[in-house]
């Protein structure tokens, strides 16, 4: 087990947040059992007050999840010289079985939390809490994810042994590796580029029509989700390579380092923002039904779609910059 300040910070923060999430979930479930919007009883008034507590807790949790994602990768990055064979976060995360799982769960938790906030925001726009049941039921999933994230993270840190020989980005993200990550790296560059830009253009096209005509939001949600995954594969396949200007270096983590002026952070953050709000757009559309939301949904749909589009555009700009403005050419 390793004991360093970052691990203490991450683990204690996660435990605290999990405790808060469970407390909020417990409150939410209690609200559901006694909820009666028609009543003006003292109990109902108290329950309505508690909805504020839940919203507040989870908006802080969302912020926490984002920070913890960044700090988690930072820590993995920082620890690489503790492991034989590790040169960056890729190696540290590979030092035991929990590293990558924890990372993936963290990203998914953040996105679910973001989508939950969008649902909550939508519900708050109507005067009769039309989504109170689905949204508090979604909290069960979210809280489980937060707990799972905490468990995996603690398991990962507790299970670290410095005498373990790990393999780093050179191997995990190489074309020869048989794993999922390896196959992402071995994707034929030109084809991946085509698929990536096609997906991006299609998403932007559908997005603009959602903004203008209000149609196709559900499709946009799906496209945004798919494009996020394709984009991650594209980062491994060629975007990172253009930043490193090394034909065989496919690491998704090294671009987070100082040597590449931390370009990975805006790259991934814009993608996370675009993906989360994009899926949120689709989810908002699917909430159509309650009469009290009829006026609100078009406004929110447009707003989240615009944010998502902005995110994808920023991502596309950062991703395309080295392809357009450096002499490096990647031939596959």
């Amino acid at each position: 087990m390793l004991l360093n300040p970052a691990i203490i910070a991450l683990n204690s923060g996660s435990l605290l947040v999990t405790a808060f999430a469970f407390y909020a979930l417990y409150t939410a479930l209690r609200i559901l059992t006694h909820w009666n919007i028609q009543s003006g009883s003292e109990l109902q008034l108290l329950l309505e007050k508690k909805t504020y507590l839940i919203s507040t807790v989870f908006s802080y949790v969302l912020g926490f999840e984002l920070f913890s994602l960044v700090l988690f990768i930072f820590t993995a990055e920082h620890m690489h010289d503790l492991f034989v064979g590790a040169m960056c976060a890729a190696g540290s995360l590979n030092a035991n079985d929990y590293g990558y799982v924890a990372l993936v769960v963290k990203i998914i938790t953040f996105m679910i939390c973001g989508v939950w906030m969008i649902v909550n925001h939508t519900d708050n726009q109507a005067h009769d809490y039309p989504l109170i049941r689905p949204k508090y039921k979604l909290l069960i999933l979210l809280t489980v994810m937060i707990a799972l994230d905490t468990i995996l993270q603690i398991k990962y840190f507790m299970g670290l042994r410095t005498d373990v020989i790990t393999s780093c980005c050179g191997i995990i993200f190489s074309g020869e590796s048989q794993s999922l990550t390896g196959s992402a790296a071995s994707l034929p560059t030109t084809a991946t580029m085509l698929v990536f830009y096609a997906a991006l253009l299609l998403t932007l096209r559908v997005g603009f029509s959602v903004v203008i005509t209000g149609r196709g939001a559900a499709l946009y949600g799906l496209l945004a989700g798919a494009t996020t995954i394709i984009s991650l594969a594209a980062v491994i396949s060629f975007i990172s390579v253009y930043y490193y200007q090394l034909p065989t270096h496919h690491c998704p983590f090294c671009i987070l380092q100082k040597d590449y002026s931390y370009i990975g952070y805006p790259l991934y953050l814009s993608l996370l923002l675009a993906g989360t709000t994009g899926m949120g757009t689709g989810v908002v559309e699917s909430l159509k039904g309650p009469k009290s939301l009829a006026k609100v949904i078009p406004i929110l749909r447009k707003r989240f779609c615009l944010i998502s589009l902005a995110g994808f555009l920023i991502f596309a700009l950062i991703a395309s910059y080295p392809i357009l403005f450096t002499d490096f050419v990647l031939n596959s």
Binding site: Q38, G40, E42, L45, E48, K49, N124, H127, D128, Y129
Partner: peptide, 22 residues
């Protein structure tokens, strides 16, 4: 504050069951 029971309309809008933010 909200009444325990009964209804209020202001300029035709029913306000009794409105959540606090509204």
């Amino acid at each position: 504050s909200r009444p325990t029971s009964g209804r209020i309309w202001i300029s035709g809008q029913e306000i009794t069951s409105l959540p606090e933010r509204f």
